[in-house]
Design a binder for these strands. Sequence first.
RNA 1: GCCCCUGUAGCUCAAUGGAUAGAGUACUGGUCUUCGGAACCAGGGGUGAGGGUUCGACUCCUUCCAGGGGCACCA
Length: 526
Amino acid sequence: MLRKNLEILIERCLKELQKEESFPSFSLDRFSLRSPEGNNHGDYSSNMALVLSKEVGRPPLEIAELLESKLQKEDMLEKVEIAGPGFINLFISKQYLEIEIKNTLKNKENYDVIDIGKGKKVNVEFISANPTGPLTVGNARGGIIGNVLSKILTKAGWKVTKEYYFNDAGGQIDVLGHSVLKDDQSAYKGAYIDELHDKLKEGSAREIGKKAAKILIEEIKKTTKRMGVEFDVWTAEGRDLREKKKVEKIIAWMKEKDLAYELEGALWFKSTQFGDDKDRVLIKSDGEPTYFAVDCAYHKNKLIERKFDRVIDIWGADHHGDIPRVKGFVKALGYEGKLDILIHQFVRIIKDGQEVRMSKRTGNYITIDELLDEVGLDVTVFFFLMKSIDTHLNFDLNLAKEQSDKNPVYYIQYAYARICSIIEKASGIKQEININLLSHPSELDLIKQLLKLPEIIEDTAKDYQIQRLPQYALDLATDFHRFYHNCRVITEDKALSSSRLGLVASSKIALENILKLMGVSAPEKM
RNA sequence: GCCCCUGUAGCUCAAUGGAUAGAGUACUGGUCUUCGGAACCAGGGGUGAGGGUUCGACUCCUUCCAGGGGCACCA
């Protein structure tokens, strides 16, 4: 990996300087090594001279010069420049690019596999909507985020379990039963309630609620599959936690550790000891455990019983208030730092210029299935992925439908289809890169872009900023289209054709990988 | 009242504290058109307002303005 090898090289040079110039020692993660935006700032740029200036006690430019003198001797680099206030700009040599780009052809679709996870276990839990109705557009955002993160983490060397957690019993399911019966305690409305009403007639509200939930969870499974999500584990609150007495066990543990107390007939968890702004009820005065109590049992199950090294919960913005209590509990368990809770902001649906207030209680919502029917999976996925999860996004259905023809996702898929077509046409030509024959700027830009995919995966596995992926896919497609426009692949010159064809084959692997990571199809023809 | 998120180009959104704030779309003009034109190239437009931190701020701190969400013995 290009950036990784640069880091190793820089580290070596720093160590030499620590000896020769009696620099203090420092870890590399304090510096940035990034691909600068502007032209002529090199392929990678380091700010370390700027950062080190104060503690070394020398001006940035002087430190930069010392490093420059070391780095200049390296074969991996074509050129080292000092610029601006003290940036060290690195230009990668063509010889080194050749080694890396040939590796992509050798390792094929695995060229971007990295191992920062080191085979450790991570649990990604997402969507987790209760089976009281069909999944809505709001659930789609969480689904797409969770799915992509799971794929990224897998590529990055983690052993990933995708999990859906739902309620199969309790108050909400009783309400569902009443709704299906359409009695005076009914709450949910919609076409699916009417269907269930015709189907389920015999039994109490509780029994009917359970039956309805079972049917609905099967529908949810179909929908998630249609979204391209294959969950590994479906955890049911009643079946997997409450009936197995896991709630009682965690509460007994809390009492034993003096983390719970009784007040006004209820049992409370001392969450203020762990950073929450007030204590939280575990057992209500009617003797029933709260959702929070079950959630404690669930997190203990994930962290301790199933031994996940990292647990990621992906929640909607309406649950942000629950973070302190759940994190507080995990801290009490002694597993602080192993739980990441990701909050994504709401999706507001605009239809015919009007906001659709989504509510299962009013029967007013757009389902994922409707969205997929109208807009299609590729466009939907891309649309959500392009935005940071912190964005409050407006999803204008009319606009999405109207604009699906000019959606950027087609630009990327088109590059892929184009590549497939070239490769088919060039079936008799060898794919063999000779870097000395590739000298057009658009060829070298494309090569450097291809080599960035592992870095994209590493960064995203660490900071979860998934909007980086569509951004990269667009950049890559742009570099390919530009290359295509400037450099004819199939020519009289056999050696040149082979080199360019090798580059095309590399591009195919990269585009296919990034499209697959996002959950977008890679069509050979379109 | 308290807590979380957001405010960037006409619109939808990017930008690990870095250099001249970038894409798409829309608009204007151009290229090429025998490997797929759903292509390529060029242009105009800008960080909600004020203060602070520092070599350097869209980014961090603070005050204010505007919008969304949350503050249950619901789940």
